[in-house]
Design a protein around this nucleic acid. Sequence first.
DNA 1: CTTCTAATTAGATGAATATCTAAATATAGG
DNA 2: CCTATATTTAGATATTCATCTAATTAGAAG
Lengths: 205, 205
Amino acid sequence: MEQADMHRLLNFFKVLAHESRLRLLGFLAEQEYSVSELAKLMNLKDPTVSHHLGKFVELGLVTMRQDGTTHYYRLDATALQRLNKELLTPEKVATFSNESGSDDWESRVRRAFIDGETIKQLPQSFKKELVILKWLAEKFERDRRYPEKELNEIIKQHHPDYATLRRDMVDCKFMARENSVYWRLPQEVTDHQIEVLLSGNFQDG
Amino acid sequence: MEQADMHRLLNFFKVLAHESRLRLLGFLAEQEYSVSELAKLMNLKDPTVSHHLGKFVELGLVTMRQDGTTHYYRLDATALQRLNKELLTPEKVATFSNESGSDDWESRVRRAFIDGETIKQLPQSFKKELVILKWLAEKFERDRRYPEKELNEIIKQHHPDYATLRRDMVDCKFMARENSVYWRLPQEVTDHQIEVLLSGNFQDG
DNA sequence: CTTCTAATTAGATGAATATCTAAATATAGG
DNA sequence: CCTATATTTAGATATTCATCTAATTAGAAG
């Protein structure tokens, strides 16, 4: 659904994104014209104009009526307004990334940076990295001790740079470590540490 | 004014008329992203994304905030709505052909005396000639200076009697002249002069 | 059926521009 | 000052598409 909308809009923009066609629309907005009339007015050849008009008709922006061998084209003004209003709302635009979603910020961050079980890339922003670390931490049971080697293996299933992630999880107190053995810390400890880290660090929202 | 509007709109469409950029907008609608984040998400190289973002910023659709070496981009949703509403009304579109007007008196005069790009004959009535002069004046860019020879050539493309037309355009202050160089005058100057000339001069309709 | 005119379709060419690589710039940290 | 990283700029290539000419289709009238 999003993709259909997006390609409809894309086509709309592509059709209107040329000077000749905008000027053509200008003529057609006043009254109806035949192909050859328009060609003379615009200093273009008939086939060129015909080609442009075809795109308009395909879009539903312009209609044609035939009289003898002459084809008269005119603008459908209601179609213009309809397209104009219906297509370009911020909510629609938000769906174009097909990483869509009407849920909260954390979900959006996860959807952006995690694909299934693999982290596509590490965010630049610390706040966003926290979301990823939180997700990663969930892969470890509480009340269990992980030798460094095992911890690395688990992280590697989600992202190759296990060293960075391991360090950051410790720094943010998602995990603790002693003698190369790691374990998950309680929620409150993590939350408190994050608050501290963020307090000097006002980034986006 | 018409032409400026039209080129603004044209640029707007050109910027939005590419799939990569629409998808980019999709991401930016949700939250802010850095260039490299977007590049990875879209499977494009950083310079490509930077290039697209530049166009958005130029349009005023997207804003950037810098943190260290990282540039965060985000959508200005109000700008989107503003552009969307302001630009694409049927009345505006009608001006793009610079053969304006639906079926008012001016349009009828033009249709009577102008065929395509050539003036079929000069009207007898001063009021009607004004319409033709106005049309002719549009063939010249504002903020540009035309040597008399070039001016003549351009007028000759529309009517053989360039001398009369040149004189009348100056008289009605469509154009000004100094040392055989001509340029288009601002709308208000022309309008004012026409009012003066017409005030003592009630001819037909 | 032939001819004339208007429009469309097909195919070729050229211009605009999306994307890439390489180089330049700017910022943070040692 | 030197290195490392994020971005931008420059320049090259490739693709998309506007426009043209030539050929085809379709209607109107002899």
